[in-house]
């Protein structure tokens, strides 16, 4: 793989994109969804919104780190196994470097008042960035007045009753299959 070749270019783009996403994902895997939407769906057009939704379901029902699962899938779609490895590496690398640096040099990082204030301002924005795609993706998932109860019931089950998202995915998948098999035909 020499610099200048198309393969090299794609791999480098893939690496840069996921390194970027890994670097700015604060507060858990869902926080990376708006970044993926902007970078991977809108900018690079590597996948569409519908596939992103499928991908969230897949990544959520698999064990392991959600963000890494997503990058493996997208990497695979773009350039097979090598792409998947690059995706996983690029997503993990920023946190690896930062945490190792903190462990090595700044044990006091957390007690720093300025860092603390920066994060107090950042956290509400993280929540907003997770909330915003709900509506955009709702349109893509072709949710109508007839089906709006499905996301509502799912959200309330997880939020108020503490149901594990894995069960919600399992039930929704089975229900979709059953609906297609027995009711629609």
């Amino acid at each position: 793989m020499c610099p200048g070749s198309i393969l090299y270019y794609i791999m480098w783009e893939l690496f840069k994109t996921f390194f970027h996403i890994g670097l700015f994902t604060f507060g858990g895997g869902y926080a990376m969804i708006p970044l993926i939407e902007t970078k991977v769906v809108d900018e690079k057009k590597w996948i569409d919104r519908e596939m992103l939704l499928d991908l969230i379901a897949i990544a959520q029902s698999c064990p392991g780190v959600f963000a890494v699962n997503i990058s493996i899938f997208i990497g695979y779609r773009i350039k097979g196994t090598a792409g998947a490895v690059v995706g996983a590496l690029a997503t993990s690398l920023p946190s690896f470097i930062i945490i190792l640096a903190i462990a090595l040099f700044f044990q006091q990082f957390r007690e720093n008042e300025y860092v603390d204030r920066f994060f107090r301002g950042l956290r509400p924005a993280v929540v907003a960035l997770i909330a915003a795609p709900v509506f955009r993706m709702g349109v893509r998932a072709k949710i109508t007045l007839r089906t709006i109860w499905i996301p509502m019931v799912s959200a309330v089950a997880i939020w108020m009753f503490g149901v594990s998202p894995i069960y919600v995915i399992l039930i929704a998948g089975l229900a979709g299959y059953a609906y297609g098999q027995f009711i629609k035909e």
Binding site: D54, A131, K142, A155, G173, Y177, G180
Partner: peptide, 21 residues
Amino acid sequence: QTFMGLRPAVIGLLAAASLLL
């Protein structure tokens, strides 16, 4: 068909994630 059922539920998942935060 499976993913047809999954997509609306994933929207719910995202909504729950932001509500929980």
